[in-house]
Simulated scan of single mutants.
Amino acid sequence: MGTNPLLEVSDLHISFQVDGGEVQAVRGVTFALHKGEMLAVVGESGSGKSVTALSLMRLIPDPPGRIKQGKIMFDGKDLTKLSEREMFQIRGSKIAMIFQDPMTSLNPTMTVGRQIIEGIRWHQQTGVTEAKEKAVEMLKLVGIPNPEKRLTQYPHEFSGGMRQRVMIAMALACNPQVLIADEPTTALDVTIQAQILELMKKLQRETDTAIILITHDLGVVAETADRVAVMYGGRLVETGGVEEIFADARHPYTWGLLDSMPRLDLPRDRHLEPIPGSPPDLFSPPAGCPFADRCPHAMNICHEEMPPVTQITSTHQVFCWLEDPAAPSVERKKRIIG
């Protein structure tokens, strides 16, 4: 992993102005992505994962959404300051995205080949023949048999898993430096999920593409990620290497996520433990830790002030008042990656 980040997000705030007021969807998120690594962003629905991902492509609909403050540095440029025309040059060619549902992302009236070829021709300024050859090569790369014939078919002629492979082929066609995968396996059955994730890992190894994987599935994270960023209530609450997060998680929310995950190494009659309570109201987010109302270890200060960052190791950091020397001692949750 290089010392200089490929992508650097600093103090990112994103809000949506709606009838009921202002939804503060992302509040002060900071992270970096290095070449060739896979960063998993995890958290329950409404934590701000997908909004953060969309902001990296500047795909937040404005209005009602807007980036209120913060920087997204990529290739020496702050993406929040670029014009739509400049962003158009970056989307697809340097930063690409695989969306959750390929059926709504692919145009049902165009053949798969035409959709891939158009992107290649636009971003790489090639002729039709060369673009077609590249499209065939991309379908081969993602494991689609008989690619020449498949180019002439429409999205409805593909299975869900094959459509997702087409989306990955489209995303990788222009050799992007960063690939954002937003819940790429949600609608797929377990066997196809495993194939898609294995494919992404293979492509990451072969092309050195940096991947941001948005997911709520910690099993997927343990299998594929290098680093993990845990989001809750629009904020990052813990980040670290995948081993650090699973074996030495420090934030009570991360403990809750881990305890709600099925384990094969524990007795069959062990019940999964849900996290009680509901996520915070982002119309009027809490002044302190966003998890305080649901946290069994919350102290008065947790409700009043956002905890500062505590550096556990050079790669592991947490935002939690339990790390304060004056905090009561709490039994740490130890997890093993199986």
Rank of each mutant, 00 (worst) to 15 (best):
E130C: 05
E118Q: 09
G161F: 09
G28S: 13
P280I: 04
M1Y: 13
E86Y: 10
E86K: 14
D293W: 02
G241N: 12
I192Q: 14
F246S: 05
H297F: 13
A53T: 06
A40C: 04
I14V: 14
Q125S: 13
E133I: 01
G46C: 08
P61G: 12
L282H: 02
E8R: 13
T111Y: 03
W321C: 07
T185S: 10
L236R: 09
V309K: 15
E44S: 08
R165I: 03
S10I: 09
A225L: 02
L82S: 03
V330D: 09
G119I: 03
G92T: 02
Q164A: 13
L218I: 08
G219M: 02
D269M: 02
E183V: 00
F16R: 01
I60E: 07
G161Q: 11
D78I: 02
A131C: 13
S47Q: 04
D189K: 14
I90W: 11
I337F: 06
N146P: 00
H271D: 15
A53P: 03
D259A: 05
M167V: 00
I180M: 02
E304D: 08
H316L: 05
Q17R: 06
P63A: 09
V178F: 08
D208W: 02
E137R: 14
K202S: 10
S50R: 01
G143H: 03
S83R: 10
T207V: 10
I120G: 10
E148T: 06
C289D: 09
R85W: 04
R150P: 06
Q177R: 10
A229Y: 00
S15H: 08
F74W: 11
Q177I: 00
Q311W: 07
I98G: 09
E44V: 05
G256D: 10
A32C: 11
M38A: 08
E137L: 12
T185V: 11
E44C: 09
M57H: 01
A32Q: 13
R114V: 12
A292M: 01
T186R: 01
V42F: 09
I192T: 15
K94E: 11
F246I: 05
A53I: 07
L106R: 15
I180R: 01
D226F: 08
V42A: 12
A292T: 03
K49M: 08
L82K: 02
I275Y: 05
L266M: 12
G65I: 04
K333Y: 06
G233S: 13
I312S: 09
R165C: 03
V166T: 09
N146M: 00
K71C: 02
D293C: 01
V309F: 07
T30F: 06
V9N: 08
I117W: 03
A25H: 04
E133G: 13
R114H: 14
M73D: 07
T109E: 03
L106D: 15
R250Q: 15
S105H: 13
V23P: 03
G160H: 07
E22F: 01
